[in-house]
Every structure is written in structure tokens, then in C-alpha cells.
């Protein structure tokens, strides 16, 4: 399989949340990178994972599928999944695939971090 064209950086965002910065392409080939980033992000007492999509350059339907499986895993750990940095195009894709029913979409990092640490 081709190599993943994506980089993910994990940062802390308060005591209860971690941010994963997604940069590049979200396709089936990004699975290992995304799951590694999640494992790194959910260390300790983290109750919320925030995906930063400001650097998202390309996403296909397999990429959306990865987000579904990540969401299920996060729910199983009784954590929450939030996002910010989605362009209008990717917001529309969240709407079509109805991911916006289950994943909170925020306009900025500040807003997402506040929401993640408030509950």
C-alpha cells in the first residue's frame, strides 16, 4: 500500500484534553498514523480529543470511515471527540455523511478547548 501522506502532531490542551493536528491527506493509508496519534493523545486523564483540521488538504470516503471508527473507539473510552479548523467544504462533508450528528464542530481552537475542558 502507498505510504500515508499525512502528519499528526499531538499537544496537550489543559488537563482533560489533547489536540491532534492533522496535516495532509486523510485516506485509508492514514489509519496507523491516526491511531498512533490517538494512543499518544489519550494518555493519562484525557477526557476529550480535539482534531485540528486546519492543515487538512485532502480527504476521501475511507478517511471519513477512519473518523467513524475513531469516534467509536473514543466513545468506548467514555471520551469526547471535538473538531475545529474545518473549511466550508469539509463542514459540508461532515453534514452529508452525518458525522456532524456525533462530532462537535467548533470555529476555533479556543472555543474547542473551552468546550473540551468545561464538562
Amino acid at each position: 500500500m502507498p505510504e500515508a501522506q499525512v502528519k499528526m502532531n499531538v499537544r496537550e490542551a489543559g488537563e482533560k484534553a489533547s489536540i491532534i493536528d492533522v496535516e495532509g491527506d486523510l485516506t485509508a493509508f492514514a489509519e496507523a498514523v491516526l491511531m498512533d496519534a490517538y494512543n499518544q493523545a489519550s494518555d493519562g486523564q484525557v477526557r476529550a480529543i480535539i482534531l485540528n483540521f486546519e492543515g487538512l488538504e485532502y480527504m476521501n470516503s475511507s478517511g471519513i470511515g477512519l473518523l467513524v471508527t475513531l469516534l467509536i473507539r473514543i466513545n468506548r473510552e467514555k471520551q469526547r471527540l471535538l473538531t475545529y479548523g474545518l473549511s466550508d467544504h469539509y463542514r459540508s462533508i461532515f453534514q452529508i455523511t452525518r458525522l456532524d450528528d456525533a462530532i462537535a464542530i467548533h470555529d476555533s481552537e479556543e472555543e474547542a478547548v473551552r468546550a473540551a475542558n468545561s464538562a
Binding site: 486546519e54 492543515g55 488538504e57 485532502y58 480527504m59 476521501n60 479548523g85 473549511s87 466550508d88 467544504h89 469539509y90 459540508s92 462533508i93 453534514q95 452529508i96
Partner: peptide, 19 residues
């Protein structure tokens, strides 16, 4: 720069159904 990047047409734009 982030805003400009987001405004550009994404590479996958033509591949997705419209809402």
C-alpha cells in the same frame, strides 16, 4: 495563511456529493 489555504479549492472538491 490558514484562512487563505482553506479558501483555495480543495483537491477532493469534485469528488464529493453536494449536501
Amino acid at each position: 495563511e490558514t484562512r487563505e489555504k482553506q479558501k483555495r479549492e480543495p483537491r477532493d472538491a469534485a469528488y464529493w456529493a453536494s449536501y
